[in-house]
């Protein structure tokens, strides 16, 4: 809901108000409906993200993008938080950096991410985040759960061992492709992305085979068949383009 200034202004001419605030002591300016993350990126300030992907609705789930606000102990996810006038955001305090590292380490323990034998080795956001955040080992014990690989689709493959549950596949399939083949079932550690009603991907009647899910997947969980170790790079240029051409639709709080 827009806040209206005291004096009557023409809201048709000013659909969104401008404000200034600070990120890491730099003055920045933003529309009131731009997230802190997008303003930071415009100003080349790097905030690590995983569940966020330009062109998809926000989920605020991975918590890697947390930032601090001066004067408050509460941490805010930059991807879903809107700035306020004169707010002072800190993206790189020791505190948030440490939390981010720990969150990433937890992600590594959750499933079986064996980078060395992964088709996405070298093209993986999880792997890159480890470098970016300086994670050279994981302090928490690995859980080594048992997960399946579904290779029933003729062109694609999903390896749940490498899934980070960012749900980009679910969102792109629903929001961009409009097929909603992907969804998620279970809860907590037993959550799992599924095709249709947990049927083998190859038998899915809703899957159009467009492969968008594969391209947006940050890791080697969703891949094209026939790729060997380190061969699976991803192409995502289509996303902002498709979004722009179709006009961004509301309901970004859905997932």
């Amino acid at each position: 809901m827009k806040q209206h200034p005291p004096k009557k202004v023409r809201s048709d001419l000013n659909p969104s108000r401008l404000l200034t605030f600070k990120i890491d002591d730099r003055d920045v300016t933003a529309h009131e409906d731009e997230t802190i993350l997008s303003v930071a990126r415009q100003n080349n300030i790097i905030i690590p993200t995983l569940c966020h992907l330009d062109g998809l609705s926000e989920r605020g789930a991975c918590r890697l993008c947390i930032v601090e606000v001066r004067g408050s102990t509460k941490l805010l996810p930059a991807c879903v938080t809107f700035p306020r006038q004169d707010m002072e955001i800190i993206t790189n305090s020791k505190r948030v950096i440490n939390y981010r590292k720990k969150i990433l380490e937890l992600l590594f323990t959750e499933r079986n991410h064996v980078c060395s034998v992964c088709v996405a080795n070298g093209h993986c956001e999880l792997q890159n985040l480890a470098v970016e955040l300086g994670v050279d080992h994981v302090r928490y014990p690995y859980l080594y759960p048992r997960h399946d690989v579904d290779a029933s689709h003729s062109r694609f493959c999903i390896d749940h061992n490498r899934c980070v549950l960012c749900l980009r596949c679910v969102r792109v399939c629903d929001e961009i492709e409009g097929a909603h083949t992907w969804d998620i079932m279970g809860r907590g550690m037993t959550s799992k992305v599924i095709t249709d009603l947990n049927q083998p991907w190859g038998t899915s009647e809703t899957c159009t085979g467009c492969g968008k899910c594969v391209q947006v997947c940050p890791t080697g969980a969703l891949t094209e068949k026939g790729k060997s170790v380190a061969e699976m790079s991803k192409r995502r240029q289509f996303l902002p383009y498709l979004q722009m051409m179709r006009g961004r639709q509301g309901g970004s709080w859905q997932k």
């Binding site: 991975c62 969150i103 937890l106 992600l107 323990t109 959750e110 549950l165 907590g188």
Partner: peptide, 18 residues
């Protein structure tokens, strides 16, 4: 909490288990 965690965010999903 571990078994009731919805599994959306990483700290709660994996942290409660650890």
């Amino acid at each position: 909490c571990m078994s009731e965690s919805c599994g959306k965010c990483v700290p709660c999903r994996v942290g409660t288990r650890q």
